[in-house]
Write a protein that binds this DNA or RNA. Structure first.
Lengths: 174, 174
DNA sequence: CGAATCATGTAATGGGTTACATGATTCA
DNA sequence: TGAATCATGTAACCCATTACATGATTCG
């Protein structure tokens, strides 16, 4: 049981295990894919690797299935719950990272042609609009299942996509 | 001159060198700190390491100062410019990553106390509001110096902060 | 002239990304 | 009963992050 510094991925896994009960990495992967993963991508390999680390640190219990797929199912330990609750109870003022390749390209827009910029803007407008539609569909499908707070998070996604769609539309018109 | 896969950091550096002319890592660091770095953080160590890689790849020229600080000044090569222009001319549909610890906490809000959520929301509202003010000040100070497209990028930041401020305010009221 | 801060890097560690790989299920 | 896809990982490499470190400047 070694101490370790907990990363955002750690807390994601801790939170998922605490919320979902005994789960496998695959189940976490699926959950992430239709929720937080939309705007913060976590590759599935991490959802396999991170629980191992947390288990080594004593924050998760690991229960390996005998026979068949021999998959591993994780449960949170009291120490894990304590770590999670401590983290949840402590507000962050850490700033949001918005990593967007398209914005980086626009930032250097002075070195691109106006045709390039226009194509970029059109592509982005379409992408953000499509994403917005996905969110609407997702919301309709999980309302009643998801927690109030999961829905709030989704709401942020929706508002963000609306803003971005509008922004790129303006750039395209220019 | 080895080939290598170019990361976002690579393009950031290529773009900065192309745009700023012969520059040192420190100068890039300063420029980043008051522009794109606000929403996509690039630690200064990368602005020292990445130019070396790009130089090894033949995309940048490196000119080491004799005596004094012996600092290195970088210039883009024709190959570098070609790589940059190719990248700029190709629209991305890659999706935006929004990495926000506070949203991750809210996502697991069902496991926090209402006091915790409220404190989180208040902290976030203040942080986003402050950031918005910084952007306003920044805009006032660079208008006329920055390119049109750099200002547009800043504009996205402003709109984003407005949305987030409003969002957390609603959560706090709840 | 000493202290603080600016300027300029390097070192080390590990998490994250990308690929690879293979055993179960499903389904046409 | 194959082929496709689902499910479940492991491997390897490297970038990114966090520290550490030290020579210039500035300034009280």
């Amino acid at each position: 049981v070694e101490p370790l510094s907990l990363t955002p991925t750690s807390y994601l896994v801790l939170g998922l295990v605490a919320h979902m009960g005994p789960v496998t990495s695959y189940e976490m992967k699926q959950r992430v894919a239709i929720s937080i993963g939309y705007f913060w991508h976590f590759p599935h390999s991490q959802l396999y690797a991170e629980p191992s680390r947390l288990h080594a640190a004593g924050l998760l219990d690991e229960d390996a299935e005998e026979g068949g797929r021999r998959r591993k199912r994780y449960t949170i330990t009291p120490a894990g719950r304590k770590a999670l609750e401590g983290w949840l109870s402590e507000p962050t003022s850490e700033h949001t990272e918005v990593r967007d390749l398209a914005l980086l390209k626009l930032f250097f827009g002075a070195m691109a042609s106006s045709g390039d910029r226009r194509r970029l803007a059109l592509t982005q407008r379409a992408a953000h609009q499509a994403r917005e539609a996905e969110y609407e569909a997702l919301r309709a499908s999980v309302v009643g299942v998801a927690t109030e707070w999961e829905l709030k998070t989704l709401e942020v996604g929706l508002r963000f996509e609306k803003v971005m769609t509008k922004f790129w539309e303006e750039i395209a018109e220019e």
